[in-house]
Amino acid sequence: MPELTARAAPPLAHHFVDMRQQTEAARLGMWLFLASEVLLFTGLFTAYSIYRYLYAGVFEEASRKGVELWAGTTNTFVLITSSLTVALAIHFARLGRGKLAAALLGVSLLLGCAFLGIKAIEYANHFHEGQLPGKFYTFAEVQGPGASMFFTLYFIMTGLHGLHVIAGMTVLAVMAVRAWREEFGPEHYAPIEIAGLYWHLVDLIWIFLYPLLYLI
């Protein structure tokens, strides 16, 4: 039985002493990577706060007239739900129920697609209305210095986040395949756990973007 052998001999790389060390290393590595990812966005958040401070009124107006609250809110729910299904998938992978875990990851992937779809509709609207960054800005309803800046930051922040969603979905897809093949079990679930951490980060970043761009 392939599942059994896979489970019985979780791969230990030659340079580690034991499995515990390997898992610990992987987990710490992921946390550090997440920290550096957060700092990647920190630069943008700083820029956002400064410009928001400088152009408080215009930013508020742009946020009110320029972006669709329903889209942002729906997307927030979509992402939170997908985080939940990922967490469940990890849980079941740990119990050795690979097929169920894979199915749950599949749901998360669908939710990821839904997120991207809604984002695409929003982007199309922005193009249509001329709510574009910098010199492409032609949206007449909100004018004044800082109006195009809102959309510059909007596109860079959501764009970068979108790339992270795509990267996260790729990782989840790989994990789904591996879970389907019953590669994970009670001793060996670090990869899927780590992939899950990444997806939660993607979710978390959105939780910050959503109020900044849609609410306040």
Binding site: A35, L40, G43, G134, K135, F136, T152
Partner: peptide, 23 residues
């Protein structure tokens, strides 16, 4: 901790140089 911030800033300059986003 510091390199990602630089990466972002350099990227912003590159974006602005290439597309004129006005950051």
């Amino acid at each position: 901790l510091a390199t990602p911030v630089l990466g972002m800033v350099l990227l912003l300059v590159a974006i602005e140089h290439a597309f004129g986003f006005g950051i």
